[in-house]
């Protein structure tokens, strides 16, 4: 043929830049994007855009299937590197706790309020019902959780649980116990979030049920005049843990809401948007469960004085409140300028 193909000339002209991009991508995917030098990082977006333009041209002028496929693949891989998640795990974590998590919690304030209301409603219901008929305790609390405690227990044995230093079976296993509590509770919390996918009703029910259980316990202890001691035992870790439970249940309900009432958006789009926000809260709640597990498993077993226990409960409540209401707020325009 005397006239060479336009597509072949096009390829000869641009091939060097494709090869260069290919080498950069191989380096970035093998050793991470941080392995690229400053010059290479400068070249990356340029080469990416050049390849995208080559791809558009090739689609209109070339019938070389291998070339088209190569450019599709090259462009898509470059796209993923150029627009992919770039930040390291630690940066993400720091940003998460400093900004994302508290902001996401504030964004879900109505759901959190509803979740807390459900928990309290469950607690009041459980308390009233159990007070009227102590045998209802068994309807609300599973035997595994009651650990032999119940309406028929004596004041002495009830008190003993609250002030056991954990010397019997747990004496030398406090750290293990703490981690067991953490993994167990975090598992339930994540479940409350994830079942939100089924419409959010189950998430709400899990909150109400937790309330029922606590109410039933409180009623039993109240009959023996041990209310003060019970809350001293429960609240130091309970403030953190119940916050985490409420957060998980709340975002579970938010997820269900997105599914049932998507509003102006398409249903799946609403689910995807709310799901991302909700996951932030659920992940943060896992961190709260971790702290609560430490307090519950180690601190509570060591500290017997009700005064100290209440002080810790109060302090954790104040800290959490301050964190969720203050952390991650945008500085005012003036503050940023000054």
């Amino acid at each position: 043929m005397t006239v060479s193909l336009k597509s072949a000339a096009f390829r000869a002209e641009r091939e060097t830049s494709w090869r260069e991009l290919e080498a950069l991508l191989a380096a970035a995917q093998g050793r991470g994007i941080r392995a690229l030098s400053a010059r290479q990082l400068m070249r990356l977006p340029l080469l990416y855009r050049a390849t995208l333009s080559s791809l558009s041209v090739a689609r209109t002028i070339s019938l070389d299937q291998n070339l088209l496929e190569y450019l599709e693949s090259l462009a898509s891989r470059a796209y993923l590197v150029v627009y992919g998640a770039r930040r390291g795990l630690f940066e993400v974590a720091a940003d998460f706790f400093a900004r994302r998590f508290p902001r996401a919690v504030r964004a879900h304030l109505p759901h959190v309020a509803l979740g807390a209301a459900l928990l309290v409603a469950g607690g009041v219901t459980g308390f009233m019902l159990t007070q009227r008929d102590p045998d209802r305790f068994y309807a609300f609390v599973s035997p595994a959780l009651a650990q032999g405690r119940g309406p028929s227990s004596s004041t002495e044995s009830l008190r003993k649980v609250l002030y056991s230093s954990g010397e019997g079976q747990l004496g030398d296993q406090l750290k293990t116990f703490a981690m067991f509590l953490f993994t167990h509770n975090a598992g339930i919390g994540l479940l409350a979030f994830a079942v939100g996918f089924a419409g959010g009703v189950v998430s709400g029910w899990l909150l109400f049920d937790t309330g029922l259980m606590m109410g039933a316990f409180a009623a039993v202890y109240a009959r023996h005049g041990l209310s003060f001691d019970l809350w001293g035992w429960l609240l130091p870790h309970g403030v953190t843990e119940l916050t985490a439970v409420v957060l998980c249940g709340a975002v579970g309900m938010a997820l269900g809401q997105a599914l049932i009432f998507p509003g102006q958006e398409e249903r799946l789009a609403a689910l995807a948007r709310r799901g991302r926000e909700a996951a932030v809260v659920a992940l943060g709640a896992v961190a709260l469960f971790f702290v609560a597990g430490l307090i519950e498993g180690i601190f509570r077993q060591r500290v017997q004085d009700p005064g100290v226990r209440y002080a810790v409960a109060l302090a954790s409540a104040v800290l959490l409140l301050a964190y969720f209401s203050l952390a991650g707020r945008e500085r005012s325009a003036q503050g940023a300028r000054g």
């Binding site: 992919g84 991302r276 909700a278 996951a279 932030v280 659920a282 992940l283």
Partner: peptide, 8 residues
């Protein structure tokens, strides 16, 4: 691809 999406 955002961190939220990955976590969710």
């Amino acid at each position: 691809l955002t961190a939220e999406a990955v976590v969710a």
